[in-house]
Each structure stands twice: as C-alpha cells, then as structure tokens.
Simulated scan of single mutants.
Amino acid sequence: MRHQLSFACDGATLAATLDEAPGTTGLLIVSGGNEVRSGAHRGMATLAQQIAAAGHPVFRFDRRGIGDSEGANGGYASSGPDIAAAIAAFRQTAPHLTRILAFGNCDAASALLLHQPLPLDALILANPWSYEERETETGEPALPPAAAIRARYLTRLKDPKSLLRLLKGEIDLRKLFRGLSALGKTKPPAAGDSLAARLDTALAGLACPATILLATGDRTAQAFIENCRPHGVAVERLDSASHSFAGDDAAWLAARIVERLG
C-alpha cells in the first residue's frame, strides 16, 4: 500500500511517499535534477511499486523547493540535510527496518557520494553526474566526453545518409573538425576542487558498500567513465543510451536493485 506523508527538514516541510512492504531492508529513492519524487514519466513511482511488490519498503521524497515540498531549491550539492532527514523519516515510518539502501540517478547519485557519511547501509549509483558544463576559452560550449564523440561519429560513418549530407555540404565542417581533433588530445587531470575530483575522492573513501550502474550509451555515464575511477566499487553496465533506464531497460534496473536489497 502507498501512503503520502511529510517530514521536517531545517524548518521546511517536505513531501514524501512510502510504499509499504514487510521486508526489513528498505530502499530510499533520491530524485535527480529538479524532478519530483515520481520521476520522469512516473518512472520512480513505477520502480517503487516494483520494489515493494518484491517485498521491500520504498521511501521517496521531494527535496526542499521541489514539487510539494517547502523551502528553497539549493540543488543536489546542498541536498545533504534533505537526504539525512528523509532517512530518519523512513526509519520512523517503517520501524521494522534493519537496513536502508539508497538509489540515485544522475546528480542524485553524485549527491549520495558527496554527502558521505550518511546513515546508510549501501548505495546504488546510476549514471553519476561528474562534469561541469562550462564554455571553452573561445566561448564555445564544452565538448562531450571523448567516448561520446567516438560513439557518435562511428554511428554516423555507418549511416549512408550522413555520408550523403557530408558530400552535399550540409554538415558543419567546423564542428566536425573540432570534435575529431578532441579525440587525439590527452585529457588533463581534473582540478582538485572539480566535481570529478571530489567524486573520485568520495569513491575512494566510501563509508558503505556501493554498486555503480551505467548505461554505456548515455553521455553522462560516458563522462563518469572518463572522469572517475571505480576504486574497487562493483560496476554493472547495460548496452543502452537511456539515461533514466526507460522502456525495456526499467526491468533491468529493478532487477539490479532487488539483487542488492537481498
């Protein structure tokens, strides 16, 4: 059964949802970006239903300033108090729990890493966000990861329509050469205060077991592979470009989570 509830966080009232189940290991779902707790196209709500049907309670919430929650939206980087308050509320509303695992996708995964240590028993981190989208010195948008560029051009080379567009002069050669030139450049080490470096440090000093789930065709996952080392953390890969594990990929995601919940 699904219940709507609320809890306090630094003077604000946050909205939450509990999917009840008898199991003693529960799942906390942390939403990425500015998504509400139901997720894109209700993906997180569906995931919660599947996990609860497998016997595990699931708690979702809107952080401050998002969805039905009060307060100011400070983004994932300042969501540590929200996550900690959600963990406490989960334990209070499901007192039979002995373990809590947390799942986050994109910057929610990064938030779970950055806000260590949290009172959690394990982390499931999907497609962690690891780079800042900054402009280059020339004012042009930052290029995607080299892995993404390689995959994109390999796909285009296999497509006769793309080759025909090139012959007709319909492709921006300036962008093409800029992308190809990036493949031959050695990536400089991340600055010590960069997001990638901080995530790498967090992975090296995890306070609890973790699993990283990557959709190998997703640009964010490719950037994480390029920017961070797993430091012995288990990594599972899915041949997909779906950042949110949509469609048929949702079953793969749910199965990986149920495995970790035991």
Rank of each mutant, 00 (worst) to 15 (best):
W129D: 03
A15M: 09
A215N: 06
H3Q: 12
K161S: 14
L5K: 06
A251V: 14
S79W: 02
A89P: 06
D10R: 12
D172E: 09
L14T: 11
I87D: 01
T46I: 11
A77S: 14
T220V: 15
G262T: 10
P188V: 06
T25L: 06
G23E: 12
P209H: 10
A111M: 04
W129A: 04
A204C: 02
D82G: 11
T13G: 12
V235E: 03
D193I: 05
K187T: 14
A215W: 05
G23K: 10
D121G: 00
T211C: 06
Q116A: 12
Q92R: 14
R60W: 03
A48P: 06
A223G: 15
G71R: 00
L120A: 03
A102K: 04
L154V: 12
G71D: 01
A109Q: 00
D107K: 13
A255K: 10
V30K: 02
E35Y: 09
P119T: 05
K168F: 05
L118M: 04
S38G: 09
P119C: 02
G247P: 06
A197T: 09
V258P: 00
A52G: 04
F7R: 09
R219Q: 11
L114N: 05
A207T: 13
P188K: 02
D193E: 15
Q49L: 09
A77V: 13
G247K: 14
A182R: 13
T211M: 07
